[in-house]
Design a binder for these strands. Structure first.
Lengths: 94, 94
DNA sequence: CTTGCATTTAGACGTTTACCTAATTATCTC
DNA sequence: GAGATAATTAGGTAAACGTCTAAATGCAAG
């Protein structure tokens, strides 16, 4: 989980996620939208992928990125768990 | 929002939140549970407070910390918004 | 108002992070 | 295989972060 939270701690990476929310994008399409070198964006993509937040698939010479909604949901659950007041032994949780 | 995500990026800080979930604690009570200097814990508390995730109130010579569930909820909303596929203008959202 | 406890602030130091440019890998086309 | 394009990896640097010890602050009690 640590990697996931760390991945969210950067504004560029959150913006990438926001971009991907509207549809899959290739690395190049993503990098174009940012004022930094492609290499830097590539690092961010690697961090997000390592955190499990996005998925990458090669398509010819392009690499297409997409949101991993599964991990996103787990993250939201974990976050909610952090704030939830403890109740008497949730017995498996509803 | 940036500060909030950054605050969550550290395991010690997440553990502090988890502690506070079970009830308010003074700075000292919190610091005791960690293997680092009190000053370090104090820095983490400051970061969490700055991020709005916790609230501090002085009680005599102690300072009592508690979760700020309001900001927590906003954060969860924001996070969900990051992953949610775009729909046509949510008009205030249910 | 001085002493003592709880907590924070100041200053220093090593590690991690984000960025850059240059070099490399992977794929496609000829 | 050579050349072009897409993307990553390598190597370096400056800023941010987490930690420490020491000093300062806030409050309470003699």
């Amino acid at each position: 989980m640590d990697k996931t939270y760390k991945a969210l701690a950067d504004p560029t990476r959150r913006e990438i996620l926001s971009l991907l929310k509207d549809g899959d994008r290739t690395a190049g399409e993503i990098a174009e939208g940012f004022p930094m070198a492609w290499a830097s964006v590539s690092h961010h993509l690697a961090a997000l992928k390592d955190a499990g937040l996005i998925l990458a698939t090669r398509e010819g010479q392009h690499i297409r990125y997409s949101l991993n909604t599964t991990v996103f949901q787990e993250l939201v659950q974990h976050l909610i768990g952090l704030a939830q007041k403890k109740r008497g032994r949730p017995r498996k949780e509803a």
